[in-house]
Design a protein around this nucleic acid. Structure first.
Lengths: 239, 239
DNA sequence: GAGTGGTCTAGACCACGCA
DNA sequence: GCGTGGTCTAGACCACTCT
């Protein structure tokens, strides 16, 4: 799977060291890292090499740099996590914020499809979160979220979950979601969709299938969303 | 629209110079640029500054760098353009290649919606390309493509258009498509969809609305695609 | 071996935020 | 005015490609 490097640049090693520290929670979200100079001295490399790594991690949205102030662990704040992974908007581009409403959480054995999707063992357990989200007060989105139970101990005992789960994953479980693979297709609304979203049976809806990945490409979450598609679109910029 | 720089880094100026040369076709796609050293000498800056710019342009997929060989103008080859902007695949991730079939091209006055979408003048003319594309021999995708006529003189007189238009835009008209904003929603198949794609009237289809932008964010193409959605998905990776 | 991009260093100076 | 990140330079050496 991994290829022999044969040659391993210094900045690669520095990169791995810093990623490991972040993963192991050496700094909390929002906290500042040591300065380039002190990191360089500590790691025995030049400032330029440290800079190259910090710039790369900033491009990956793991860090944030502020001139004159310092380098910070990027925070998955509500706003930020939303605008990064919530791709639903009005036709024309107006961004929208969903409001959470009812949700149900339970722990159960993983089904075969879930084990395959998330690379789980045979006897693995998962947490299933089902929730409906409102847009402008209207039920617009129904999500079924599956995460491995061993990654999120006790999450099912929480009174309420935040609107953006990824900030919770980060702050309470040290898991950074850094990318997501999404597949979108069209379906006809079922009776269940009618009950939950209020759409007519047989009207067109969007189904979004997301696999969310953490830092080392670990598969952390499988989410299937069913979206009322009148006056709502799935919007992305390809670059 | 543009903000006052107040301070304009050197590499920014170098960047603009090189982008302009590329836009004006100083080098052909696939051709190699001068080496970092000679560019640096010519522009009166250090090699490091040139390198920073070339790396940035490479990240924007405008250039390609090959160690030991040189820096090249990225080619919008069929394959490359496809995998960059053609986001349709099988559920699970298998990438697909469309084959072109029937197409119709005509020149006409721009409609109001088209003028708004592409920032055109009142009396502007557009070229409308309508085509159906096959996937695995099956009609799967119907596209209506609108481009400003003045950007593509004579394109309507061509015998046949290539499967990927963006390589044609680049090689014959010097226009590099660098990004695209897409909006996806679900609709029910109409009688027209039935005739063209062979889907049952009332079955769910995906509609993809794309605005393609060239180097300086000029709006170059508006494309609306209607996709047979059984066993096909719109797939993206959010990072 | 010559020429290219890739890595790494050391040091200078600039712009910014804050006390 | 200090400390931070941001820009810029000059030069050394490494890895890769081709002749």
């Amino acid at each position: 799977m991994t290829d022999t490097p044969g040659y391993r640049p210094l900045y690669r090693q520095v990169y791995d060291i810093l990623v490991n520290r972040v993963v192991q929670g050496a700094w909390r979200p929002g906290e500042s890292l040591p300065s380039e100079q002190s990191l360089a001295k500590e790691l025995g490399v030049s400032q330029g090499t440290v800079r190259k790594v910090l710039d790369a991690l900033t491009a990956e949205k793991l860090l944030e740099r502020r001139q004159g102030k310092g380098t910070y662990i990027a925070e998955h704040t509500q706003e930020r996590a939303l605008f990064r992974f919530f791709r639903i908007s009005r036709p024309g581009g107006e961004r929208l914020k969903p409001e959470r409403t009812s949700e149900a959480v339970r722990v159960r054995a993983a089904r075969a499809a879930e084990r395959a999707k998330l690379d789980l063992e045979r006897d693995a357990r998962v947490i299933e979160i089902t929730r409906t989200r409102l847009i402008n007060g209207d039920p617009a989105l129904h999500e079924v979220i599956i995460v491995p139970a061993h990654l999120f101990p006790g999450i099912e005992k929480r009174a309420a979950l935040p609107n953006t789960l990824y900030s919770l994953y980060q702050t309470d479980y040290g898991i950074n979601i850094v990318s997501a693979r999404e597949e979108v297709h069209a379906e006809l609304a079922t009776a269940v969709d009618h009950r939950i979203l209020g759409v007519a049976v047989g009207s067109p809806i969007l189904v979004i299938d997301r696999l969310a990945l953490s830092l080392q490409d670990r598969k952390v979450e499988w989410r299937v969303s069913r979206l009322k598609s009148d006056n709502l679109v799935y919007a992305v910029t390809l670059a």
